[in-house]
Amino acid sequence: MIVAERKPISEILDMIKDYHRIMLVGCKGCVTVCNAGGEKEVGILAATLKIARKKEGKELEVAERTLERQCDPEYIEQISDIVDDFEAIISMACSVGPQFLSERYPDALVFPGLNTKFMGGALAHGVWAERCQGCGTCIVHLFGGYCPITRCSKSLLNGPCGGSSNGRCEIDKDIDCVWHLIVEKLTRQGKLSNILSVQPPKDWTTSRDGGPRKVVREDLA
């Protein structure tokens, strides 16, 4: 899933400081699963913003809507009848949300309520970790199921670098050295030969470096 995190309240309050009628738009996709922008988080943010405003002796009208997804136009459409009633919209989706809302409603003032962090999964309840950078050409099978592009701080294809110590990365002892994990796993599987030859430079054209990307399924489009 796409993992996101709510922006600090102070930043959101500053975004909406000139407005009195706002709408919070949540998303039932990834950000609901990572507890950043689902229906419940929308409720919490609405209550918090109202408390902060009331504390200053001012009122804030907050409407709460949570869409099935903010990355599909048909769901974005569902607020078309009310969008004009508000001075500002805060999207509580990944960064796709505020962009899709802005594109569909060119006159609306749309603000991002979340910081989009990465593509990853849950390690435990309330703990998420990065697993994919979307390079466009998956090669994890060559590395024992680990992605060195994402999980090595230097994205080395021929690691581990000299800073690997006791299975930990040189930049932070709380970060696993993914190359240590790769060597251990391939040794256990008897597949160390996978990484004994030099892995050539990566072709980054399929990554974001090749320009903004698009996927087209001819049979569906």
């Binding site: 419940k40 409720g43 919490i44 209550a47 918090t48 109202k50």
Partner: peptide
């Protein structure tokens, strides 16, 4: 007791 159960009375 949810976060909202605590925030709402304050609000």
């Amino acid at each position: 007791v949810d976060i909202l159960h605590i925030l709402r009375p304050i609000e």
